[in-house]
């Protein structure tokens, strides 16, 4: 209990004093995870919707694979991205290892299946509702996906937020591909791991509370925006 109280106190001190290092790693955390969420949403939302409205051979197999990939171990993703982007790997010439870009790539791989899978689930229900209308109106495939994504946007925001939650709290992959370099690739989760390694539990907990607060703040911000946009009841 005492540790937790000290952690909260530490978090308060960090936040109130706007500690420069804290601001830096927080901004990087947000930058990496939001970028990864945007990219993963740009891939996962249409992909999930496409899977929901199309019939093709192996469809079940693809969906089952997608669902399984939701549980992809971040460490394995990190390792694969590491090997691919290592100087001795196939993409080594890009020099991306130990950069925020590599961290974004790893997070995109981790969260795209989550976003696509939740999207597929949501859109499938909406599609069964809209199916007759959209076929009757002689819509193209693209128009169907657009209508379903737009009308399902509230539920789909949850899909993106689930992806964001996984990304911002993820440590295994970005530790490996980012390297936790101070002032370069250190984010909240890897800083927590570092402080824990130093035995500085109060600092680690403090950063942990900042991380939780950040995740809540992003969620609240998005919900507020989407609620004021139009009547809150669909």
């Amino acid at each position: 209990m005492n540790d937790i109280a000290q952690g909260l106190w530490q978090a308060l001190i960090l936040v109130v004093s706007l500690d420069a290092d804290l601001v830096e790693i927080t901004v990087l955390s947000l930058r990496v995870s939001l970028t990864a969420t945007l990219i993963a949403s740009a891939i996962g939302l249409p992909l999930g919707a496409w899977l929901a409205v199309n019939r093709f051979p192996l469809r079940r197999g693809v969906i089952a694979t997608l669902n399984a990939l939701m549980g992809l171990p971040p460490v394995v993703v990190g390792l694969i991205v590491y090997v691919l982007f290592s100087r001795s790997g196939p993409f080594g010439v890009l020099g991306l290892l130990f950069t925020p870009t590599a961290m974004i790539i790893a997070q995109v791989i981790i969260i795209t299946p989550i976003i696509a899978s939740i999207t597929h689930q949501t859109i499938r229900e909406l599609w069964s509702e809209y199916r007759d209308l959209l076929i009757s109106l002689h819509t193209t495939r693209r128009q169907r996906i657009a209508a379903l994504l737009w009308d399902g946007r509230r539920a789909l925001m949850t899909a993106s937020l689930a992806g964001f939650g996984r990304a911002i709290g993820e440590v295994g992959a970005i530790m490996i591909v980012g390297g936790n370099i101070d002032h370069a690739t250190r984010v909240l989760t890897t800083a927590i791991a570092l402080e824990t390694g130093k035995g500085a539990f109060d600092m680690a907990l403090g950063l942990g509370f900042v991380l939780i607060a950040l995740a809540i703040a992003v969620n609240l911000a998005l919900h507020m925006v989407s609620n004021t946009e139009r009547g809150a009841r669909w």
Binding site: S88, G92, F98, G179, D182, H183
Partner: peptide, 21 residues
């Protein structure tokens, strides 16, 4: 010159060096 540190065990450090990372 800014030195970015990758804090790892000696074994992993040598592997990173061998790979040119």
């Amino acid at each position: 010159i800014t030195v970015q540190l990758l804090i790892v065990g000696s074994g992993q450090a040598l592997t990173m060096g061998a790979a040119g990372d």
